[in-house]
Amino acid sequence: MVFDGLAIFNGIFELLGVIFLIFIALGILILLTAIILSYFLVKKDRLIFPKLFLYIMDNFYSILLKIFLLVGTEDTFYKIGLDFYNKYYYDKFKKAKNKVLILPHCLRDLKCPAKLGADGIQCVFCGKCPLGDIIKTAKENNYDVYVVPGSTFLKRILKEKRPDGVFGVACYSDAFHGMNYLSRKSIATQSQPLLKDGCINTSVDVEELLRRLKDNNKKK
Rank of each mutant, 00 (worst) to 15 (best):
D4F: 06
G5F: 10
L6E: 08
I8N: 12
G11E: 07
I12C: 10
F13L: 15
E14S: 12
E14N: 06
L16W: 11
L16V: 10
V18T: 12
V18E: 15
V18R: 13
I22Q: 07
F23T: 12
I24Q: 15
L26V: 09
G27A: 11
G27M: 08
T33H: 13
Y39E: 08
V42L: 02
K43H: 06
K43I: 05
K44M: 11
L47P: 06
L47V: 02
P50T: 05
L52G: 15
F53V: 00
L54I: 00
L54P: 04
Y55C: 08
M57H: 08
D58H: 03
N59R: 14
N59T: 06
F60K: 12
I63F: 12
L65P: 05
K66L: 11
I67K: 05
F68Y: 14
L69C: 05
L69Y: 05
L69F: 04
L70V: 01
D75V: 08
Y78F: 14
Y78A: 06
K79P: 07
I80A: 09
F84A: 07
N86Q: 01
N86W: 00
K87T: 01
Y88Q: 00
Y90T: 03
K92R: 13
F93R: 01
K94M: 10
K95P: 09
A96L: 00
K97Y: 03
K97N: 15
N98T: 06
K99H: 10
L101D: 01
L110F: 14
L116F: 07
A118M: 10
D119S: 14
G120W: 05
G120N: 07
I121L: 11
Q122T: 10
V124R: 15
F125R: 15
C126S: 08
C126A: 07
G127C: 11
C129V: 09
P130M: 02
G132H: 12
G132S: 15
I134Y: 04
I134A: 08
K136G: 03
A138E: 03
A138M: 00
E140I: 01
E140V: 06
N141C: 01
Y143W: 02
Y143F: 10
V145W: 06
V147K: 00
V147R: 01
V147P: 02
S151I: 05
T152D: 11
T152A: 14
K155P: 01
R156L: 02
I157V: 12
I157G: 03
I157C: 08
K159Y: 04
P163Y: 03
G165Y: 01
F167D: 01
Y172R: 09
S173E: 15
S173L: 12
S173F: 14
F176V: 03
F176L: 07
G178T: 09
N180D: 09
Y181G: 00
Y181D: 14
K185G: 07
K185A: 13
I187N: 01
Q190N: 01
Q192I: 04
Q192F: 06
L195W: 07
N201F: 10
S203D: 14
D205M: 07
E207R: 13
E207C: 04
E208K: 15
E208T: 04
E208A: 13
E208L: 11
L210D: 07
L210I: 09
R211M: 08
R212P: 02
L213G: 12
K214H: 05
K214G: 11
N216E: 09
K218M: 13
K219V: 04
